[in-house]
Structures are given as structure tokens and as C-alpha cells.
Design a protein around this nucleic acid. Structure first.
Lengths: 143, 143
DNA sequence: CCGCATCCCGGCCGATACTG
DNA sequence: CAGTATCGGCCGGGATGCGG
């Protein structure tokens, strides 16, 4: 299912015979996206906009702790990524609505998979054991 | 599927009746994980370890551009998150093997979903249109 | 071979003030 | 209401060198 010849030959697949050169990983597509949405606020915005369209200050109040600056930046980034659509109403006072683009909405699906994982395994994260460093006896190792 | 009462009531679901207070989003679990794996190298390491166990310098050579410092940091972080297991062979010279823990392997599944999305929509990202800012005529807006 | 310590820089991000 | 401008702290992350 995940298997297309784009550099991501299914993450869960068995160890492939030809261990793809390092260059392939350098521009790993998953990494790209994760880095895109991996910053401090992006995910929160996506989640909020995943529910319904929001106006600027609506988001500003909805995401406690975010500054105007970062909200603007985050929205601009999402916009230029084509994940959110921005709609300006030239009223007085002006108002702007942000909503997830079709592309952005399609992203919600894999994101839900992640959410599912967190719901199921999230409690095992954090401090999964301080000293599980498993030392085997001499002579058993590779080198 | 995504719907457990843990704070992530399915991202793709229709707009829920009770619009959860902002506090809920503050500690959005998905955001947590994404921030965990959203740094520069973590995803690459996970992908490599997803194929098979690797030794330190094997990873170092496999992920072109990473410094020893960052590889160590990344591995330590993944380790304390319980996503990778570290196994030391007290040989001379010493050797260390890193492999995905069961938890880490379980993470590959949702990550694959993301990979699938990238494979399918990745080309629409980046510059999805400079000035798609849609301005409607006066009188049509909310405010 | 594995990994830590130190130095340093650039960018992320917050606070604040100002504009249409 | 919806931003922009500027300053500054903090930290991610690269280079190098040392230790077990």
C-alpha cells in the first residue's frame, strides 16, 4: 500500500535486499512533511481548522499562548503550502476567514492515524525506562 | 476508530457539538508526538532502524550530513522515549546496536500513512499558488 | 568504536509597539 | 479586526577536540 517508487518503499515492509544509498534518505518525503508541521503551533492550527473555518482572532483566542506574530507566520506557512485557504472580507472592520483546503483536509486522514497511535501508545512514551541499556556478555557481539 | 475519550475525538470527524475548550488543544497529544519526531534527524533514524538494527557508525554513515553529536542526541532522545532499544556489546573495540523497540515499530504504521499521503499529494505542496487570497465583494462577509 | 564537552552561530519564537 | 516591525532570548544544531 505504501509501495510506490518514490523513495518511500513502505516503512513497515521487511528489510529490503538492496539497502538504498544514503542519498535516498536525505530527502525522505516523510521527513519533509513532518518538519513542515512539526513546529510549535502548526498542528494546533490544523486541528482547529479541521473542525470549522476560523477567523484570525478566533484562532488567536482558541490557541492559548500563541502570539499574533506566530499565528500569522504559521498561517502564512500553511497558506503557501496550500494546506489552508484564506478568505478576506473587505468589511469594516475587516475580517478574514481561514479554512482547510481540500489538500489540507486530506492530510487529516494520516494525521488521524497518528492520533490513534498516540491514543493507544501515548502513555508508554516519555520515560520508558531509565536503564534498559542491555549489555550482553563478551564474545556474543558482532565486532 | 480514532474516537476514544482521550482528548483526540477523531480529527476527520464532523464538527462536534461541544467545541472543546482551548485548554484541550494546549496539550494536544498529536502535537506532542509530532514535535518529538519533528526535529531534523529523528525521522531519518527511525526510517533506517525500521529496516534493520544498526550500529552507531553505520547510522552515522547512513545519514549523510548528521554530526556525531546530533546522532547521539537523537538516539538518546528516542531511547528515553522508549522508541529504540540500545544494546551494548562490551567487546574491544566496543560496539553498540540500535534497533526499534516494539513501541517504535508500532509507530511505523501511522508513519506509513503519512508516507502514503506524501507520495500521493507531496507534489502539491510547496508553492500551491502565490495569490489565491480570495477576496469577496462587500456585504457578503460575516462581520 | 562510541560518545561526551566546549564553543559558537543562525533561526525560532515571544514581547511589545505601531498601522490600515 | 488583522496584521506588520523591531528587539532580544533561547535553543537547535554544526565543528572540533578529548575520554573510555
Amino acid at each position: 500500500m505504501s509501495d510506490t517508487n518514490t523513495g518511500v518503499p513502505s516503512l513497515v515492509g521487511a528489510p529490503l535486499p538492496s539497502p538504498v544509498p544514503a542519498d535516498e534518505y536525505e530527502r525522505c518525503p516523510v521527513t519533509e512533511v513532518v518538519r513542515r508541521i512539526g513546529d510549535k503551533w502548526t498542528m494546533l492550527v490544523i486541528v482547529l481548522l479541521g473542525r470549522r473555518a476560523h477567523r484570525f482572532n478566533e484562532l488567536h483566542r482558541g490557541i492559548e499562548g500563541i502570539s499574533q506574530r506566530m499565528l500569522t507566520r504559521t498561517l502564512r506557512a500553511l497558506e503557501s503550502d496550500g494546506l489552508v485557504d484564506r478568505q478576506v472580507f473587505p468589511t469594516v472592520p475587516p475580517s478574514v476567514e481561514y479554512r482547510l483546503s481540500p489538500l489540507g483536509r486530506s492530510l487529516l486522514t494520516p494525521l488521524s492515524a497518528l492520533a490513534d497511535w498516540v491514543v493507544e501508545h501515548g502513555d508508554e512514551l516519555g520515560r520508558a525506562g531509565g536503564t534498559e541499556t542491555d549489555v550482553v556478555g563478551p564474545g556474543g557481539g558482532p565486532a
